[in-house]
Design a protein around this nucleic acid. Structure first.
Lengths: 198, 198, 198, 198
DNA sequence: AATGAATGAGACTTCATTCAT
DNA sequence: AATGAATGAAGTCTCATTCAT
């Protein structure tokens, strides 16, 4: 393979797996999981559908692999978060890191946000849920009032909304990100203060 | 028609259209739009697929009809909101009413939230977007800082999150709803005070 | 029925059967038999499909009825032709009358010409064939050479072609019809002379 | 793949595409386009419907491919015809070649003749029309009288009729073909003489 | 590392037709 | 004279997946 000499088809050294992931993620995020067929992915890459099956055993496995590859920072964040004392500073830092992690894998998160019904049926569905729960736990005090618990969840959701829904807000992306982060940190802070006095 | 005498198949008076909508919404919300086939809907109702086509011209039209039928309170809310002065009280009332409207059509909103990728391709996609924008506008002051704008959007999203994601929080639903509403109103209030001093 | 007062739906006294035939013929000729659904016919007439079944037992029967109603002049022509002596004048007169008959039911003939494959499977298929054979027989001398027989058939086909295919020829329709007729008569005349000397 | 050892299913080397075309053409010509379902074609070939879709993207494309593959001689004829001087000999030769071309792809032409209504809606519809026009142009003198133009068209249509309609004429096919050709050439010759004197 | 050919399941949709009212 | 509601059959097409090469 390679055809060389005119640029077409060449340079496909060993990165096909990677290229499949890239294209798949792009299409999944853009059109949704079910609307994206393997034929479409294959055509974009100029390979056959069968080639996809050399690299992944099923369509679902492509999603799983994306999830596993792009989600590491989040896993790390949770591990890290669990080891920290539940101080205000920790919580704020978690929000900050979460924001960064989201930004680093934004197409994946967009995909998961916009295809929740689908994701729920996929193998990653449970992981995802667990994982949102864990995040909630390390940011929420068990003895917090219901209202303060909602504040924490809201803080996380504000970050999510910030990534996708607020895109049509004016202002440049970086400023927007800062504003979103500010609101989110505010919520966590209020929750903390509500619970621990101050 | 009616078979009578054993209860099966009877009572097909004039409510089939409605029954289709009910079952469809239930399944769409539960499994997603694409995973729900017309065969499945028909089977649940014990009619043939063709019967669905007597009442709706396409699968998409079923969704559209649901949207149109269940969305009226929201439309009304927007109309009402536009006519009010942009006082703090108005905004708070809008949040309250929005919360109630969401609760009144929660399966539809669950569906739309969990199938965003799909909805975007459907005819209702644009309406939905417009409609979120309008809502944002009547709750946000144009001269508010970016941060305060984010607060308002966050208030709306908190309500959304409250409906679906927070379901696995402890506490009884009614208490949860109150807590969510409180946080949401808080956010709007902060945004208002931030902008108008006080 | 009648709605009156605004023109819609009114005046459907007893002519529905006729109106169905008219619309059906128009659509059959324009789009073909299979591509024309009863739904389409019904919609154009602003009645339900079931109404069509009040007037005709099947889709095929609509075609049959058109055939029977519009084809009478041709039947008459054949009867008449069979009783005449096989002189040149008779043959020429048959061509002339055939031309007129075609012109009088041109949408039906267009339909039959353009949907031969379909017509063959319909009940009228055989009639049609018989009927072209009869026409051929009364215009062709049994003792004519093969070439002269071909001339006669060609004469008939020239008339057919004249109706549909030659429509994109320049010249006004009436002139065209005359030219076509001339060629057709010419062919018949040559055939006759070839067979009977002169 | 191949099952071998009992003859069934074997030999599926690389000829499936061709076999689809063969069977499709046969069925289209025999029963018409719409009455021939892909299921039927697939069953005859003992493959699944999906296999057809591996080779052709739509049902229509099967027809298009047949058209493109079998129509080449006609295209060539038109090209050739355009380069020749418009002498009587040329015209006669065109008729002769057209007759041969028709005979070489007679099932396709039968199909097109008997399914005109359908063909008109297909992608090949326009090509076909253009193509009959071109043929007419190279055989017709622009300054010919309307009658002589009709003669030329009639010459072409006589050939068409000769292939299908005249099949139930007595005589062996070869003789019939000669007779048809003679009449056709005659018509062209008369038209030429009519226009150029002599 | 990838292709060519095919499958089986199932999707949405349309059609002619029926029948109680 | 016609409607409203429904059916059963069939149609075209797409998809994820398989497997010999």
């Amino acid at each position: 393979m390679g055809v060389t000499m005119d640029g077409t088809k060449q340079q496909r050294r060993g990165n096909t797996r990677q290229r499949i992931q890239d294209v798949a993620l792009e299409l999944f995020a853009e059109q949704g999981y079910e609307k994206t067929s393997l034929r479409e992915i294959a055509e974009r890459l100029d390979v056959t559908k069968a080639a996809l099956y050399y690299h992944f055993r099923t369509k679902e496995e492509i999603v799983v692999s994306l999830f596993e590859d792009l989600t590491q920072p989040l896993q790390d964040l949770i591990v890290w978060g669990r080891e920290q004392p539940r101080t205000l500073e920790t919580k704020q830092e978690i929000v900050r890191r979460y924001s960064a992690a989201l930004a680093g894998a934004s197409p994946l998160f967009r995909f998961m946000q916009e295809n929740q019904a689908t994701v729920r049926e996929l193998r990653i569905g449970e992981s995802f849920k667990d994982w949102m729960r864990d995040l909630r736990h390390i940011i929420t005090d068990p003895e917090a009032s219901l209202t303060d618990q909602v504040r924490c969840i809201s803080a996380l959701f504000t970050l999510h909304a910030g990534m996708f829904v607020m895109q049509d807000l004016e202002g440049d992306p970086e400023e927007r990100r800062k504003a979103v982060l500010e609101v989110s940190i505010d919520l966590v802070t209020q929750a903390h203060r509500g619970t621990h006095g101050g």
